[in-house]
């Protein structure tokens, strides 16, 4: 969501913290991932301007930043809904009903996996194993896990999300 910011603004926003990150590694390239993470936390997603800003701050080719941003699935390269629901659909969750929950979410939110509701409040994603199979089926939202999901639990969760702006959730 850096579309309202200029390259220079992004750079000066991030410069100090990127500098700090660089001290942890012997090469500037290593700082690409943490810098993308930082930018995403700051702006909600990453985009061309972010790659360029990071490339310039680290003095590495811009393509290196883009390669990394596009390889890893946790970097959001487009604007996400205020609440990003990542429902695990991998085997252990599937075996405990994740597919039905996904159906339910699709109906409730009127989106396909990977899409954002038209009001921009929810993004729904089907994700791979979240490493919390003991509470399958499980989803992640605002960096938190919600497990042992049922349709009722999901509805309650959606209601809580809808009632609260994203900033207060994380």
């Amino acid at each position: 969501m850096s579309d309202t910011r200029s390259l220079d603004e992004i750079k000066s926003d991030l410069a100090e913290r990127v500098e700090q990150i660089m001290t942890r590694y012997p090469t500037a390239r290593s700082a690409i991932m943490p810098s993308l993470d930082l930018a995403q936390q700051e702006y909600g997603s990453v985009d061309e301007l972010t790659y360029r800003a990071i490339a310039e701050l680290l003095d590495v080719p811009e393509i290196w930043v883009f390669e990394v941003a596009s390889f890893y699935s946790l970097y959001d390269r487009s604007k996400m809904g205020r609440h990003h629901i990542r429902l695990c659909t991998n085997l252990p969750c599937m075996l405990r009903g994740a597919e039905a929950l996904m159906q339910h979410l699709q109906q409730r939110l009127e989106v396909e996996p990977g899409e954002t509701t038209s009001d921009g409040s929810f993004t729904l994603s089907a994700v791979e194993c979240l490493g919390a199979c003991e509470v399958a089926p499980v989803l992640m939202a605002h960096a938190q896990y919600h497990g042992d999901l049922t349709v009722e639990k999901l509805d309650a969760l959606l209601a809580t999300f809808a009632a609260q702006p994203a900033e207060e959730m994380s």
Binding site: P61, I63, W64, E67, S70, F71
Partner: peptide, 9 residues
């Protein structure tokens, strides 16, 4: 040059 790279996976 490092003009080319690979996107996605």
């Amino acid at each position: 040059d490092v003009a080319l790279g690979t996107s996605e996976r």
